[in-house]
Simulated scan of single mutants.
Amino acid sequence: MTNRKKYIDVSKGTAILIVLITHVFGLYAVDSEIHNHIMVICATLHNPTFYFMSGVLFYGTMKKYDRSKILKNKFLDLVVVFAVWVVIYTMYQIILGRTFYVENSITGYSVSAINSLWFLPTLFCGMSAVVLLDVLKHCKHIGIIVKNDLLLCMIWLLMILVTAFYSSGMAKIFTFSYIVWKGYLGKSKKHIERLDAAVWGINVAAVFVLNFAQTSDMSIPGWRLALILFMFVTGSIIIPQIMEHICEKKSESKVIDRLAKVGQNTVYIYILHFFVLYLFEAYGKINLFTCAICYVLCVFFPLAVGHVIKGKKIDYILFQPSKLLKRL
């Protein structure tokens, strides 16, 4: 594995472990201010990292395949997989009788499943935006704007800012689509990376000093949401930048190898850890110790399942239907 490939997997592995921290330990001490601040800061790192790295990898995909095939495959692997697992997790919650943060009804369980797996269709939106922009580059008039990365960047950020005051859902779609596009363009120049890191650091300090960010702010339109989304944009390069530097210095480290292994299985961990999380919420006694046990299970249960099913028909049906279509 090359250092570049390893840094991509290590970045994804680090990000998914932070995702699990927010999902599992987010159940503990939910009324604490420091808890809210840490959850917001973690959110500005893990999801943006995935979207950024997806954009980096999507560049190679765009070079290999035609646009219609890319969209068809991504629709199958993201939107169809999303729909399948929403049904599975709705039924699973009904069986458990889960009531933690959830209305005890089919609608409530369905909404909970959709909110859990929102990453998948949002990533499809980001990749679709990249494909659309690539097509528009060849248009006579609008192509002038699309080919100008700086102008397009300013327009995109303005759309994020405006929608942040009206619709949190739409603002997040614009934000994460922008981050996918940012990754697709390739790594920025070093001084831009440092600027992003500095701005993100200043925002983190402001979160603690001014006490302005709560987890609820990520769902409520307004200036707080706008600032958090700006942290998403600037925070998207933090983990990749750190991990690329570490992989250059310690590429043979066993810890790095383990993180890379986790990064290669993020799709299983992201989707399957909800089996453990929902069970824990339904029947577990929530304290720091049980959260730690739940966290370990959320990592190793999906890894074990992925190891058993990888490359088999059930794997293609539930996680990679585009590969199943190729075999038919």
Rank of each mutant, 00 (worst) to 15 (best):
N3G: 13
D9F: 08
S11M: 10
S11H: 06
K12A: 15
A15Q: 01
A15C: 02
L17T: 03
T22C: 09
V24W: 07
L27I: 10
A29Y: 15
S32C: 03
N36S: 13
I38W: 08
C42D: 13
L45M: 03
H46N: 08
H46Y: 14
N47H: 14
N47W: 12
F50H: 00
F52E: 00
F52V: 00
V56K: 01
Y59V: 01
G60V: 05
T61Y: 09
T61L: 11
K63E: 15
R67Q: 10
R67N: 09
K69G: 09
I70A: 05
N73P: 05
D77R: 10
L78E: 00
V79S: 00
V80L: 14
W85N: 03
V86A: 06
T90C: 00
M91T: 12
Y92W: 05
Y92H: 05
I95E: 05
L96F: 04
T99V: 09
F100Q: 11
F100H: 13
N104T: 05
N104E: 04
N104V: 04
G108E: 01
S110A: 13
A113Q: 02
L117Q: 08
F119W: 05
P121S: 00
F124A: 02
C125K: 13
L132R: 12
D134V: 00
V135T: 13
L136M: 11
K137N: 09
K140P: 06
H141T: 15
G143D: 01
V146M: 00
V146I: 05
L151E: 06
L151N: 03
I155D: 06
L157I: 10
L158H: 15
M159F: 12
L161R: 10
S167T: 05
S168N: 08
S168P: 07
G169R: 11
G169I: 06
M170Y: 14
K172Q: 14
F174C: 10
T175L: 01
F176G: 15
I179R: 04
V180W: 09
V180I: 08
W181H: 11
K182T: 12
K182G: 13
K182A: 12
K187W: 14
S188V: 10
K189P: 07
K190D: 12
H191Y: 15
I192L: 15
L195F: 15
D196H: 12
D196F: 14
A198S: 13
V199Q: 08
G201P: 02
A205I: 11
F208L: 02
M218F: 11
I220R: 13
P221T: 02
R224M: 08
L229A: 02
M231A: 13
F232L: 05
I238N: 02
P240W: 04
M243G: 03
M243E: 06
H245G: 14
K250E: 11
K254D: 09
I256R: 04
R258F: 14
A260Q: 00
T266A: 07
T266Y: 02
T266N: 02
I269L: 08
H273K: 02
F274W: 12
F275M: 10
V276S: 07
V276P: 08
Y283N: 15
G284T: 01
F289Q: 11
C291D: 04
C291T: 03
C294G: 03
C298G: 04
V299S: 02
V299F: 07
F300C: 06
L303Y: 01
I309H: 05
K312Y: 04
K313I: 15
I314T: 08
Y316V: 06
K323N: 13
R327T: 07
